[in-house]
């Protein structure tokens, strides 16, 4: 017992020596790194515990989460966010019952009308204008709606770019290439300015939906390219086989091309939605008070002036945590999809 223990510790140290102290150069680098890390972490701890004034975060927690949503109604966005969180945890660690797993997608889709109902109000809840939305709620809302709207548009664009009709092919190619050439902030800014110009007289869209449409127009071009990659990797023999079975054009697209292309493009698509979540922060410059915008407006408050580090570190933590949750969910989904593929 003791001997195996000693042996394993010796093995452990040998392994460490092999990976960290291989030669003189490596040893020097390792020692330097250890020194650097210890100095940095001592300073960071000192700052975290003694110097930092976390009042700017703690006293404003509802603002970060819900923006200027009326205080009496804040349980509504809170319910939505908590239900999303619970659903993520349940998806990751819940039981493996087959019927439940099959219906989980429907539950996920059901969170969207639930969120809209809870935020907008009506039907028993008091209605609330979209200019009161803000904070993490608005960030999540922008991400969810833009990615949901851009997926079908992206699929259509990808199919058009692959089609044999020259006109549709040209138009969608030009659209995709132009959208991919211009920066996102330009699309968002001109979306705020130009969308009202292109609408008929008397018709108006509020800022939040203009932002969602601009994000959709931008992201769908990227999604289209990802799906096109998936479409191109489907061997031509599959289409020939479907043709010989007597499927028509639309059946081939619906049952053969799209499911496989989506499955292949899945990692790229989940990366797009994580990128989209980060990019919603750009709306802070364009006048929406989402998570970063709230941070900016809190810093403009004379009571908290100059406490940049606390606010930015806190915001970075929130973004990091949500991104990591999304990445873990995405990996879970990818694993599930490949398992399904093996079963077929």
């Amino acid at each position: 017992m003791l001997k195996t223990y000693i042996n394993s510790t010796i093995f452990f140290f040998k392994q460490i020596r092999k990976t960290i102290f291989l030669n003189l150069f490596n040893t020097i680098i390792t020692l330097l790194i250890i020194l650097l890390i210890s100095v940095a972490s001592i300073h960071a701890f000192k700052w975290l515990i003694f110097k930092a004034n976390w009042k700017v975060v703690i006293s404003n927690l509802p603002l970060y989460a819900f923006g200027s949503f009326p205080p009496d109604e804040q349980w509504r966005p809170a319910t939505w966010i908590i239900s999303l969180l619970l659903l993520s945890i349940f998806t990751l660690c819940g039981p493996e019952w087959r019927w439940l797993r099959k219906n989980l997608l429907i539950v996920w889709l059901g969170t969207i009308p639930l969120g809209l109902y809870l935020l907008y109000g009506g039907l028993g809840l008091s209605p609330i204008m979209s200019r009161h939305w803000g904070g993490l709620t608005l960030t999540i809302l922008l991400t969810v709606f833009s990615s949901l709207l851009s997926l079908p548009l992206g699929i259509v664009l990808a199919l058009c770019r692959q089609s044999s009709l020259p006109l549709t092919q040209k138009v969608s190619s030009i659209y995709i290439d132009v959208m991919r050439a211009i920066p996102l902030i330009a699309v968002l800014f001109f979306g705020q300015l130009l969308i009202p110009l292109f609408l008929p007289l008397g018709m108006e869209i509020d800022r939040v939906w203009r932002a969602i449409f601009a994000f959709t127009l931008f992201v769908s071009a990227y999604i289209a390219e990802d799906i096109r990659g998936g479409l191109q990797s489907i061997p031509n023999t599959q289409i020939e086989a479907a043709n010989s079975l007597g499927l028509n054009q639309y059946q081939i697209i619906q049952f053969i091309l799209i499911p496989q292309a989506l499955r292949i493009a899945l990692p790229a698509l989940t990366n797009q939605s994580i990128g989209l979540f980060q990019n919603t922060s750009l709306m802070a410059i364009l006048g929406l008070v989402e998570l970063l915008g709230i941070g900016r407006s809190i810093l403009a408050n004379p009571e908290f002036i100059g406490q940049y580090i606390e606010v930015y570190v806190w915001l970075a933590c929130v973004y990091w945590i949500v991104c990591t949750i999304m990445a873990v969910l995405a990996r879970h989904l990818e694993k599930r999809m490949t398992i399904n593929q093996a079963n077929f």
Binding site: N26, I29, I34, L292, Y308, Y312, A316, Y319, C323
Partner: peptide, 30 residues
Amino acid sequence: TNSLLGLISAGYITIIRQTPLLLQLMFWYF
């Protein structure tokens, strides 16, 4: 081969990639 260095660079990459660029720019500036 240095696994400590590998670990640190992996941490650097996740921190930088999982936070928005705009936040990082504001951090550097302000």
